[in-house]
Simulated assay, not measured.
Amino acid sequence: MSLSDPRTVDDLLNLRLSCLLNVSGAMVTRLCEGRYGITRREWRLVALLAAHGEMSPSELAARAQLERARVSRLITELVAKGLLARHADAEDKRRATVRLTAEGVELFEDLFPRSVAFNNEVLAALTSTELVAFDAALAKLTQRATQIAALKPVQEKADRRHGGARRVRRG
């Protein structure tokens, strides 16, 4: 495998990162779903609210890097599960903020250390020097990908509601 000279799909950065996430994230996903009855995306929202406090659904969607419509559905689910509370703005009822309930805080305080333990087990494969270099490389790659995305190099829009592409292009 070579990131610098990809010869097959298995050499592509995004696929390799996706594979790492699937394998390492599976442990947390199983814990979330099996023990706590929440999805990994719901866990992401809970963790972000625990870290950053009350915020608007739009801000939460931006921080989670998820579509606003999806975050809205997740918020509805988390409110129904008693983990989030939604508060309408007193001056503008169309605006709202969400925050963790006491049950949400309790879930976070129980699940976060377990997530950290899985995270640390995976990172134990690296020396402290490799870990510092990897952290710096991830930051650089994220910054570069953000810059490229801002240029909108792909004009076509995704149509995720209909299973992907609006039409298949051949040739």
Rank of each mutant, 00 (worst) to 15 (best):
A124F: 13
Q147C: 08
R40H: 10
A61H: 06
E91T: 08
A102Y: 04
I75W: 00
I38P: 00
T142D: 06
T97L: 03
V28W: 15
L83F: 02
G82I: 00
V71K: 04
R73E: 05
R63I: 02
A133C: 09
D89L: 10
A51I: 04
R35Q: 14
I38L: 02
R169S: 05
A145M: 07
V71F: 11
A96T: 11
T39G: 05
A124V: 13
R166A: 06
R161H: 12
D92T: 12
W43T: 04
H52T: 13
V168S: 00
L126W: 12
F112R: 14
R70N: 09
F118R: 13
R68F: 06
E42I: 01
R99M: 01
R40G: 12
A117D: 09
D89I: 08
L45P: 00
V23K: 09
F118G: 07
L126H: 12
L12I: 05
E121K: 09
F112M: 10
D135Q: 09
G164R: 00
R166H: 15
A149V: 14
T129W: 07
A88L: 07
R114K: 13
R144M: 08
L12E: 05
A96N: 15
E54V: 02
S4M: 10
S115G: 12
A88P: 10
L126N: 15
V132A: 14
W43K: 06
T142Q: 10
A51V: 04
K93S: 06
S115Y: 08
L21T: 07
L78H: 04
V105L: 03
G171T: 02
N120Y: 03
G37K: 04
A139G: 14
A80Y: 02
G53F: 00
S72N: 10
F108T: 03
A90P: 15
E33W: 03
S56I: 03
A124Q: 06
V122Y: 14
Q155N: 13
A90D: 15
L74P: 01
L83M: 06
R166P: 05
L111P: 01
S2P: 00
R144G: 02
L78N: 09
F112E: 07
A117Q: 07
A124R: 09
H162A: 13
S128E: 09
N22F: 09
R166S: 11
Q143M: 13
E103F: 00
R7T: 09
D11N: 07
E59T: 05
R70M: 15
D92K: 15
V116I: 14
T29E: 11
E156K: 06
F118N: 12
R73Q: 06
Q65L: 09
E121A: 05
L48G: 02
V105Q: 00
L151A: 12
A90M: 08
D5L: 13
G163I: 01
S4W: 14
